[in-house]
Structure formats: C-alpha cells, structure tokens
Design a protein around this nucleic acid. Structure first.
Lengths: 154, 154
DNA sequence: CCAGAAGGGCCAGCAATGCTGACCCTTTAT
DNA sequence: ATAAAGGGTCAGCATTGCTGGCCCTTCTGG
C-alpha cells in the first residue's frame, strides 16, 4: 500500500484542521464525498492517522515553562535502560524523550508551570534514577511551533 | 475567568481523544450534555482549546529522521533576529524552535526523510543565514512522545 | 433574611453530518 | 478483451451538533 497525492492532500488538511466536515474536505482535495470518506477510513485503519486530538494553549493553562534536559549516563545495561524508560513514562511533565547519537545520550523536553515546579520535578527525577550528567536548558521563547509534518518534503 | 475541575476533565479528555461525541464526553466528566457543550464552546472561544487536528504517524509517511540542531550566533541585532525568524518559519522541516538561556542560543527540532534529506536541508539552512556554531544531534530512538499537557500538575 | 446571579439538569426540535450500500462509468493492467 | 480498482452519483437512515427555553439549586452580597 502507498499514499498517493489525494491521500497527501487529505492528510495535509486534517493535520492542520480536523474540525471540517467531510463535504468541505472533499471539495478542497478535489474528490467527491464518498471516495474521500473511504480514504480517511483507510488511512485510519492503517495507522497513518494515529488519533484526533484537541491542541491546548499551555500558556492559558499555567504551563508556561519549557525546559530541555540533556542527559549523559555511564550505565549502559539493559536493566538501567528499562528503568529509565519506566521513569520517563511515569512523569507527565516529560513530553518527549529522544535517545541521541553523539555527546549526549538523551534529550528530554519538559513542560512545567514555573521555575519552582521545574525544580521540584528535577529533584523527583534524580531521586528516581542515577544520571551521571544533567544539563537543563531553559526555553526563553518559543520562536516556532508546529504540529504539521512536512508532507511536501516526501 | 479561570479553569475549574470540570474544565480540566474536559480538556484532559479532548487532548487525548477528540473523536468522541459530546454525549460520551459529558458522561465521562460527570456533566449533562448542555453544560458540557457550553464549556467546550467557552474554552474554544477563549483560546484554551487552540485547534482540533489529526496526528499522523511520521514513520508511515517516510519521515523517520528527527534531528535536534543546537545553534550559537554572534549576531545579536534585531535585524538578524528578524531574519532568523523568517528563515525558520519558511522551512517546513523545522517543527519547533526555542530560544534558550545558557550555552546555546537556539534549539531546533527538525524532521526529515533520511540522512540525505537532512543534509540537503542543512545546506539550504546555512545558505540562508549566518550561524557561528551549529551542532546536529541525531535522534536514534523516540523513547517517549506525548501531546498531552500535564494538566494534573497545575 | 432576601434577591439576584451563576450554573447545572431536563427537554424539545431542527439542521447538519456521519455513515453505508448500491450502481454506473472510466481507467488501468493483465 | 476482461477484470479489477477506484471515482462519481444518489438515496436514505441514524446520529450528532447545536440552540433556546425553563426550572431548580447553590452561592453571594446587600
């Protein structure tokens, strides 16, 4: 199975705005309603569309602080790795964790209310797992933020 | 205006799954349909709910490479800042840009198809704006990824 | 103590949308 | 030449979205 140009147009629209009716969507992508709807069904079934969600405004919810945490470890056992996985999953403040190639082992993106909340988080984190080096980079300003994948670059 | 416990329950549900009917949502949060619907309207009007979108699977769309780019600059004029803003906005591969406090000035999150596509992106980027130091950190594995804000931490 | 405001519950009802099946037609591939 | 894939159109039912109206309880301030 592959994703053709119609699919891409549908996905582009839906990842930007999910609140349109299928009739409107069909018109935008140049299909009639039925095949458009069938494609959406297929894309959902195949997992190309993972979920439909509401995007909230962190600022209005008193979650104004974003911190990137760079982590080095000297433990490279499977046991440590499993433990680390469990720990990061259990913290809702941790939005994203990537294992990196290069100087740092992990990069975490953390969202909290403020400095005090971050500090509390940090203490809880290092109490749960041993990390040989932790560098916190505070975000001063979100210059760009998008949830839209670059589908035109495929 | 503030966000009360009912609002939080509604937001928690919606940021997880937007595809439920209001009737189902109302039942989950312990409200009847009408007040639940009115709250959603209010949350949208006030911008707490920013948008409704479909989340796509990058892997199934041949967008398997995530790279974090750390940037230092020695230009700190308003003109450079404006130019930088324009440049990052114009690259769809750049998903997120944060201005940092500390050693690095900016952290970019970039999504591309593969190594070759990233390299092409990198060349286009440095051709567009002068950067004194650029460090690319390749993500080997996405250990955690969530779109759900930690509302219980408020 | 009373009055008013806020907000939830209930109900009714129309309009719009979601969703499905059936059938036809064109294009493409074997 | 034939079959399969996929788009177009249409019909139609069920569900949902959305709105207004009304009542009741709770809370708050005079």
């Amino acid at each position: 199975m592959l994703v053709d140009r119609f699919d891409l147009k549908i996905l582009e629209q839906l990842q930007r705005d999910d609140s349109v009716s299928i009739a409107q969507l069909a018109e935008k992508v140049g299909l009639s309603v039925t095949p458009c709807w069938r494609r959406i069904q297929r894309l959902e079934k195949e997992g190309v569309i993972e979920k439909r969600i509401a995007v909230l405004n962190p600022g209005k919810l008193d979650l104004g602080l974003t911190v990137f945490v760079m982590i080095k470890t000297d433990k490279h056992s499977q046991a440590w790795l499993d433990a680390f996985q469990d720990v990061v999953q259990s913290f809702p403040e941790i939005m994203e964790v990537n294992r990196l190639a290069g100087e740092f082992d992990y990069l975490l993106k953390v969202i909290t209310r403020d400095n005090a909340a971050y500090d509390a988080f940090y203490k809880r984190l290092i109490a749960r797992i041993e990390l040989s080096n932790v560098t916190s980079c505070f975000s001063m300003e979100q210059v760009k933020k998008t949830t839209e994948l670059p589908l035109d670059q495929r």
